[in-house]
């Protein structure tokens, strides 16, 4: 069962969105997030929602899969919405009991914020659905490379990310092994109160720590044997290359922003 976990959540199909250069994709995602923030009325927001649905459609990632990432945050969204409903006291009062007033603008804001957060999550998760972890870390390394000027070791950061991703499944397997080993010695992990349960984690955590340090030193040693000395003078097999798809993506983004600005201007009556 543990063998089934995949790194990140890459969804392997061929689509235009998959084809976009990961660097461009990250930049466009950031712009998209800003654009979502810019929408200040329901009409603009509706428009953005349509463009996002369109992007999802282009990516060929099934909606069922996307819904999974929405499910993960649904409680946070409900919670924030409730706060908005109960504590926003402007607008016409609809129901009132005690200190709590529910107003029409409170409900509107709650819905608005909820939609906004959902769109945030959908568009961000689309990046990880359509980009392999390798490409993602490569792109981050490239995008952060200007930071080299202020002496940030960008290569090492990217290398750490890669190794972390690489070792997550290994560590999970290790936890599984240690848990079984402790159970075989009679450790009881399933019963008792919170305090007892937390205590029962310690016999797993300590061996895990020790074995990770061991793995780390083995790995460092193996990397050294393979001539690794950091990012200096290193080449890459996989070259990121921009194509026409990236230009189309940029144009699409540009059109979305332009429409946004126009809609924000003319639909100010629907402002929140």
């Amino acid at each position: 069962m543990l063998k089934d976990i995949t790194l990140g959540q890459y969804y392997p199909v061929k689509s235009v969105i998959h084809r976009i250069d990961p660097r461009v994709k990250i930049l466009l995602l950031i712009i998209y997030l800003v654009t979502i923030f810019m929408a200040d009325n329901f009409i603009s927001l509706g428009f953005i929602m349509l463009t996002i649905l369109f992007t999802v459609f282009l990516s060929k990632v099934p909606f069922k899969v996307i819904l999974k990432s929405i499910k993960a945050i649904i409680f946070i969204v409900i919670f924030t919405s409730l706060i908005n409903i109960f504590f926003n006291s402007s607008g016409n009062v609809l129901i009132e009991f005690g200190i709590i007033k529910i107003t029409d603008s409170g409900i509107a804001t709650a819905i608005f914020v909820a939609i906004r957060v959902f769109m945030f999550v959908v568009i961000s998760s689309l990046l990880t659905y359509t980009t392999t972890p390798t490409n993602l870390t490569d792109a981050i390394e490239k995008l952060l490379s200007p930071l080299k000027v202020i002496r940030v070791d960008v290569h090492s950061v990217a290398m750490m990310m890669t190794i972390a991703l690489r070792f997550i499944p290994t560590l999970i397997e290790e936890v599984d092994k240690i848990t079984n080993a402790q159970k075989a010695r009679g450790a009881d992990m399933e019963s008792g109160g919170i305090g007892k349960r937390i205590k029962s984690v310690i016999p797993i955590l300590i061996p895990l720590f020790i074995s990770s340090f061991r793995s780390a030193s083995d790995l460092a040693f193996a990397m050294e044997c393979r001539c690794y000395t950091g990012g200096h003078g290193r080449t890459r097999m996989r070259q990121l290359r921009m194509t026409r798809t990236d230009i189309y993506a940029a144009i699409f983004m540009f059109v979305v922003i332009a429409c946004m600005i126009v809609l924000n201007h003319f639909a100010s009556f629907a402002k929140i």
Partner: peptide, 23 residues
């Protein structure tokens, strides 16, 4: 403890990349 990358072929490429071979 000796495989560095998240994909097989990237790992094989690790050594040659370190010594600066052409892509």
């Amino acid at each position: 403890n000796q495989i560095v990358a998240t994909i097989v072929e990237d790992d094989v490429a690790f050594g040659p990349e370190n010594i600066g071979i052409e892509p």
